[in-house]
């Protein structure tokens, strides 16, 4: 349906399209420029680059600092994702199957870390980690990341559960499946899109997390922190190459998310 139909032929549909094109350009152009610049063969950044090459990718992928930080970030995200999925899915089930009158209140509490400024959360966690002497270690990063990723799992799995037909589970139970097996064989396979979305959100959020980890680390460096400190020191083409690598991973995961039709859950995230 076109907007003309909404408003009659007088609606300036073209003007709207024009404005939106500019906004989308504003959103996407910087990233395109970043990607192009990352392929410069020069030792400085310029647009368009005078010559092209993968020189800076080579440098990133052979530099110990970059590789260390990339692997630290990957390790954290890989540990956080399954844990976040388990915790969040359990919580989403509790909210979905628990008493209806408590649902809204409990849900608000369970996703509240989303609206808490991460700077405040980071500050508090840093103090606690210092007191427990676990700062600069996985013992601090993992729970911290879980706290900010679980709400996304609760929301995306919760959205899937809402559209799930509970009679399917009842059918399984009448056929002799215990509650656990009914969930395992029937519910989980059917709500898989929600689980996948939750996992992707968890992975990306953990991988990109900056401020909380920034507080918690002293010597160890995750990728965002390594990028930040490099950036504060000097803007070199290697930073564009690293950025493009991260971008490629997240764009791939985002595309997967969209193709699985989980936009609705992305939508719910915002509400």
């Amino acid at each position: 349906m076109s907007s003309q139909e909404h408003y009659g032929s007088r609606f300036p549909y073209r003007l709207l399209v024009g404005v939106v094109t500019v906004v989308i350009f504003f959103l996407e152009a910087p990233l395109v420029i970043l990607v192009i610049q990352s392929f410069t063969a020069e030792s400085y950044l310029a647009f368009p680059p005078p010559s092209y090459g993968v020189r800076w990718y080579k440098e990133v992928l052979t530099s110990e600092d970059w590789l260390n930080s990339i692997s630290l970030s990957l390790i954290i995200a890989t540990i956080v994702t399954p844990l976040s999925l388990i915790f969040g899915t359990m919580a989403a089930f509790a909210l979905d199957r628990g008493p209806k009158k408590l649902k809204n209140g409990l849900q608000a509490i369970m996703i509240s870390p989303m609206v808490l400024p991460h700077i405040v959360l980071g500050l508090g966690l840093f103090k606690m980690a210092l007191e427990l002497d676990i700062d600069d270690s996985m013992l601090a990063y993992i729970p911290a990341h879980l706290t900010i990723t679980i709400p996304f799992v609760i929301i995306s799995v919760g959205a899937s559960l809402q559209t799930f037909e509970v009679t399917l589970e009842e059918a399984a139970r009448s056929l002799g499946a215990s509650r656990f097996w009914a969930v395992w064989h029937i519910t989980l396979p059917i709500i898989r899109p929600g689980l996948v979305a939750g996992a992707i959100f968890s992975f990306i959020i953990s991988f990109d997390e900056f401020i909380i980890t920034f507080f918690l680390t002293t010597f160890q460096r995750t990728l965002p922190i390594e990028m930040f400190s490099t950036l504060m020191y000097q803007v070199r083409p290697s930073i564009a190459a690293v950025s493009t690598l991260t971008l490629a991973v997240t764009a791939f995961l985002t595309a997967m998310l969209m193709l699985r039709g989980q936009i609705t859950s992305g939508n719910k995230v915002i509400k």
Binding site: P30, L31, I33, L34, Q37, L45, F47, I200, F201, I204, F207, D208, F210, P224, M227, F228, L231, V235, I239, A240, S243, T246, L247, T250, A251, L253, T254, L257, G266, V269
Partner: peptide, 15 residues
């Protein structure tokens, strides 16, 4: 939403 904030800041920095 899913793109690192720091990557997007780098992009603007270059522009």
């Amino acid at each position: 939403l899913l793109t690192s904030i720091i990557v997007r800041n780098v992009a603007w920095l270059l522009i």
